[in-house]
């Protein structure tokens, strides 16, 4: 596969590209993308002290806090381990996680904390959808207002904050993809991550 393809004069639209493909097969076939992203996110976050600079220049702090699920294999051969650390969430004891990663398990779910400017989010992020579960917003108070205007206002505020979160998650995923699709992934980033992992095991 050529890693540095040049743009062609006619690129098929996404719908044209996906035409005839069975969505569930495609989703299943590329399920590893979410696992590799979460594994990369976890290792890079630990290695680089939780700081990520997105392609738009925005600086984001992101780290896994308290719980991680790591999995090896699929179907009947699937082996999972769940790790929960009650220690200081910013410095949890991840020894078990490093051992699991060393045994070729990949991160399949984790409790992620994200800080960006004045916004903070805490969410569980599963590898199969990369959509937040149990999302907690720190900047939007839960509504106790009973009138519709108050509720509608809070709703709009939460929509905007959730859109910000999706934009940050996309920024992080894009950062991963921009490395994953180049030769630098095999030649530089992967060896760097493996070296970091072998030091921590």
């Amino acid at each position: 596969m050529s890693r540095e393809k040049k743009p062609q004069s006619h690129q098929p639209s996404l719908e044209e590209l996906l035409e005839g493909m069975i969505f569930l097969d495609l989703w299943q076939d590329k399920m590893f993308l979410g696992q590799e992203f979460l594994t990369w996110l976890y290792l890079t976050s630990e290695r680089d002290e939780h700081i990520f600079e997105l392609e738009n220049g925005m600086q984001v702090e992101a780290w896994f806090e308290n719980s991680l699920q790591l999995t090896y294999g699929q179907g009947p051969n699937k082996r999972s381990v769940s790790i929960t650390t009650p220690e200081d969430p910013r410095d949890p004891d991840w020894d078990e996680a490093y051992t699991a990663l060393g045994n070729n398990k990949k991160v399949t779910k984790g409790t992620l904390k994200i800080k960006c400017e004045d916004r903070q989010f805490r969410l569980t992020l599963p590898h199969d959808t990369l959509s937040p579960q149990g999302l907690k917003f720190s900047t939007v108070k839960d509504t106790t207002e009973s009138d519709d205007l108050g509720k509608a206002g809070k709703f709009l505020e939460r929509i905007a904050t959730t859109a910000d979160l999706f934009s940050i998650l996309e920024g992080l995923f894009n950062l991963f993809l921009s490395q994953r699709l180049t030769e630098a992934w095999e030649e530089e980033e992967l060896p760097r991550l493996k070296e970091y992992l072998s030091k921590r095991k």
Binding site: L14, L17, W27, K30
Partner: peptide, 23 residues
Amino acid sequence: LLVPVTLALELVPPHRREDILEL
């Protein structure tokens, strides 16, 4: 449905979409 593969296909430039499918 937006899942890792469909999200990736949306995020990368059009000329890199085939690369996602070949990963």
